[in-house]
Every structure is written in C-alpha cells, then in structure tokens.
Simulated assay, not measured.
Amino acid sequence: MKPKTLEFSLLFILLAMLTCGRLFAQQGTTNRGDIEFSFANPDLVEWEGESYFSLDVMASSAESDQRLGTGIVLLNYNPEAFGFNVRTNNNVIVTQGNLVYREPFPFYYFIINDNTSTRLAITFEYLYSAGNGGLLSTTPQQLFNVKFKVLDTGHRAGIGFQQNMMSNQQYWDDNATLFDPVVAQDVENSLIPILPQHIALTIIGNVLFVSWDQVSGCTYSVYSAVDPLANDWQLEASGLTESAWSQAVEEDKKFFRVTATGTQ
C-alpha cells in the first residue's frame, strides 16, 4: 500500500505544479491591446526666421482604458529636403503634445537622437506611476509635434515610420506590459513648396486684399498678427487655391503672412 500512497502523492504534487504554472503564465502576460501611430496637420511654418515643415505625430487605440507609458517613434525623412543627421545639425524641433504634456511636473521625458543619417529616433520615457499615463482613445491625439528645418524646396517630405523597429518597444504606463500590435504605416509625402513670393497688400475702400505669386501644386494659408515679433500669428484662412485673399478692414494696423502647403 505504501507505494500506491507515494504514487498518489506525487501525482497530486504534479497536478498542483501544473495548475500553479498556468496561473503564473496568465499573470505574466506581456502583451495587451493595440496602439496606432499616424500623422496630422502638415504645414510649412516659420520659426525664428527659418522655414520648417511642421507635422503632428498622433497616437490612438481601438481599445478602451489603454494608458501610454514608455515608447519610441522612428521617423524616416527625405534628406533632399531636410539634410542628413537633423538632430546632430540642430535642424529639428520636437514639442510634447497634449496626450503626454503635464504641468507643473513632466510625466514624460523626451530623448531625441539620429538613429541613422536619415532616420530620427524620438524616445518618450514615462516617469510616473501606473494608472496616470496619457489615456489613449479611438480618436488620434497629439503625441508630439516635430518640425524639420527646410534646407531645400521643391522636394517631397518623404516622412514615414520605421514600423518593424517600433514593435515590441511601446509600453503601457506600468512600463512592463507591451502594446501589441503596433501599427505605424502612415506616410507624409507632401511637396515642400517654394515659399510664396512678392506678397502684396492693397486696400480698396473698406476691403483689404492680400496677393502673392502662385506656387505650383500648393494650397495656401493666411495668418495675421498685431505684432509680428510676438510670434502670435492667428490663422485667417486655409486651403486657399487662389493666390489672393481679402477681408473687411477691421483694425488700424495688422501684419500678414502667407504659407504654402504642397498637395499630394
């Protein structure tokens, strides 16, 4: 009888170990939910007297209750428009977006490096506790804005994600659970246009007219400011297809600028 008792005891221990093993595997799951990166709001802007191609990098998830932790975005770009090694040459500006920006203390720390001579690596490190990271939604939210200094016009932006290197690099705000899958297939290939030239302002009666030289393959945006040095330009009109715009005269003094955005 003793051998049978020993056999039964060993069988019981083995079953208990298998049960615990299954529970441990469930608790140690490292993949949860999806995350998708995309682009929005491409524009040609002026920053401290230089021309930049501005672009928002957005993040979203098809599932609810997904909070963003540490991750990395890898952006390929066209060196004909922006040159090589944009970080090393100080030809790029990155600003935190509303998904991750917090005051008065930052929850995320951004690290910007050249991954290759034509690829930018933007790492966002989550510094706070689980349950407080940026809450993703099905509607894309701004993760950050990136501005590439334009070194030459007349070229396509050629900006796209390096998706294969971004997989297994995006974490929940516990910085342990991975998002899976990671989708980053969007491409921004707008033409970097020649800036509109010979901008003219004319007032006829109570109507103000702004005109400029046509730039092939572009739409236009008109901005105004009371003080051009305050960097507080207000959008007056966008998506214009004609090289002219007008409005009623409302103030004694106002400054205007025009930007062109290349169409696909």
Rank of each mutant, 00 (worst) to 15 (best):
G49P: 15
Y171K: 05
K253C: 04
N31S: 06
R257G: 00
G21S: 03
E7I: 13
N76D: 12
S54M: 07
Y77V: 00
K147M: 09
L68P: 10
A225H: 04
Y108S: 01
F12T: 15
I122N: 08
A184M: 03
V94S: 00
Y101N: 12
F105M: 03
Q169K: 10
Q96R: 11
I203N: 09
V146W: 11
E7H: 05
N231C: 09
Y109D: 15
T138L: 06
R102D: 13
Q162H: 03
S117R: 11
C20S: 06
P181F: 07
F84G: 00
S211N: 01
A176P: 14
S190M: 12
I204W: 08
S243I: 04
A62C: 01
T261E: 15
L18G: 00
N168Q: 11
R67K: 15
T138G: 06
G217H: 05
S51A: 14
G158M: 00
W245G: 12
L195T: 13
G262N: 04
A248N: 12
S137E: 08
G97F: 04
N115D: 06
D213F: 06
A62Y: 09
I192V: 15
L136V: 07
G83Q: 02
M165R: 08
L44V: 14
V150W: 13
P228L: 02
S60R: 10
K149R: 13
C20T: 09
L10G: 10
T95C: 01
V146L: 03
A59C: 13
